[in-house]
Structures are given as structure tokens and as C-alpha cells.
Design a protein around this nucleic acid. Sequence first.
DNA 1: TTGTACTTTATAATGATTCTAAAAAGGAGT
DNA 2: ACTCCTTTTTAGAATCATTATAAAGTACAA
Lengths: 132, 132
Amino acid sequence: MKYLKKLRNSGLRPTKQRLQICEVLFDTEKTFHFTINDLVKKINKQSNNKISLATVYNTVHAFEKKGYLKQIPINSSQTYFDTNISDHHHFYDLKEEKLIDLDNSDIGPINILKKISGKKIKSVEVLVKLED
Amino acid sequence: MKYLKKLRNSGLRPTKQRLQICEVLFDTEKTFHFTINDLVKKINKQSNNKISLATVYNTVHAFEKKGYLKQIPINSSQTYFDTNISDHHHFYDLKEEKLIDLDNSDIGPINILKKISGKKIKSVEVLVKLED
DNA sequence: TTGTACTTTATAATGATTCTAAAAAGGAGT
DNA sequence: ACTCCTTTTTAGAATCATTATAAAGTACAA
């Protein structure tokens, strides 16, 4: 089992549900963006074992906390997640309502000049909205 | 009336409610960030005329559409708005759950190298998350 | 195998936002 | 001011993503 160790190492018991979700999320050529709703559809398409909605929420949040997923800051009624956890940014196509990755190399270096005392920068996220 | 013309010019009837909301939002020295909930509290503090929640939602969205307010892309259960409509960015203090403005001058120039054919850039928004 | 802590699950609860449709108010023309 | 028509407000219901609950199931160390 490919993800057994990964889960154990992060202190998450490798349950059937978590392993199946790992496959759907990480057994792909390319990384992708998804909502919980998208993910549930993918799970149901992949096999007949339905996983409870609550478990999908729990698992996604557990994975995010462990750093296996990133939340994408965007104003939408649903929360978007990204299986691409590298340091990168996003285009958001307003018409199609779709996210597109924007690699760090596709953007000039970002230099935050202002400092807030007592605080350090955890992440810098750029959202570029696109229109026709 | 200070905001009568502003509203008329944008094709919004200057109702009592809209004028009052204008005062709360725009009659301030400094710009600020708020949620609908924050705004309702401010309105109720300022006067005894309660404005219906639905009207607050309608008005804020109308103002946003006219460009008098900006939505701030951030993952939160509530939507954040900004009365500062100039081109700028935000710090988000994860611990305090508070937004701090980051002027364009506080950040190096951002140069998006990747182009998406048929689309043009509408906005570039940077969110800098802060931790202790 | 047994005990215990962790997980899953169905379902209920929550809470922000949107919808509805009836009443109220703005505004142009008279 | 009066009328008419459109826009706006409103209370309450509806929606919908997400979180909470608590009972049943499972992993795993001893």
C-alpha cells in the first residue's frame, strides 16, 4: 500500500476511507483543484464504496492540516482545495469559474517591504482574476 | 445630502437606507474592512432605525457592483468587504483573524508573465498570511 | 483477544446568504 | 398634491455548505 506509510508517519490511521481518498487525490499525473463536492463525485465514480460526507470533510481537513493539501483563498460559496502544495499562485477565470495554476516562475519575485512587528510571513498568495 | 448625487449618478435611488449605509461606510477618516455582520452592528450603533438584513445584503452588493466596495478574497465563513477601493493588498493575521492593508508601495511591482489567450487581467490580489 | 482510543457514519444543527412576495417609497408627469 | 409605475424594503422562509453529535465500527498495542 502506497499511502500506508505516509498516513502512519503523520499520525493518521490508514483507514480504508483515507487510503481511498489518497488514491483519488494523489494517484494522478497532474495536480488539480477541487471542492468537497467535486471530490465526493470522484470517489463515487472511482468505486462503489460510498464514503460518508462527514468523513470526506474530516479527511480533507486532516490532510490540509498535515500539509498534503492547500486551501485556495477565493471568494466562492464553496471552499477550493489544491493538491499542488508547491509554492505557487492562481488565475481565476471569472466567466468559466475555473482556477488555473500560475507557477512561481510565471510571476516576478514578490518582495513584501512592510513588516509587522512580532509577526512573520507564513505565505504569500496571489490571485489574478481574468475577464474576456 | 452628501451621497445623494453619488447614488443618483450610479442609477441607485437614494433611499433612506442607502444614505444611512453610505454614512456608516464612507463618512470616516480611514477606510476599513468589514463583514455584513459588522456592518449591521455599526448601523444599529449609529442610530435606532434598524435596517433589514436583506437590505444590508442588497445594498452592499449593489455598492460592490458599482465599484464603491471591494470584496476581499480570503477563506472565511463570512465574506469580507473593504471600503478602500484603491489598488492594494492585504496581510491576514491568522491568530487575530484581522486584515491589514498593504499598499501597492509596500510591495514590489508584480509582473504576471504567463498569458491566457482570449483573457485579460482584471485584478491582481495578494494575500500575505501572518503567524507569530 | 481484549481494551482503548481513534474513525466513520447518518443525521441534526448551524449559520451565512439568497429568495419570495407583499408592502412601502421614490420619482416623473399631470 | 395626486396618480402611476418602477424600484426598494422587509420579514420570514428557503437554501446550502459546513460542523456537531453520539452511536457503532475499526485499528492496533499489549
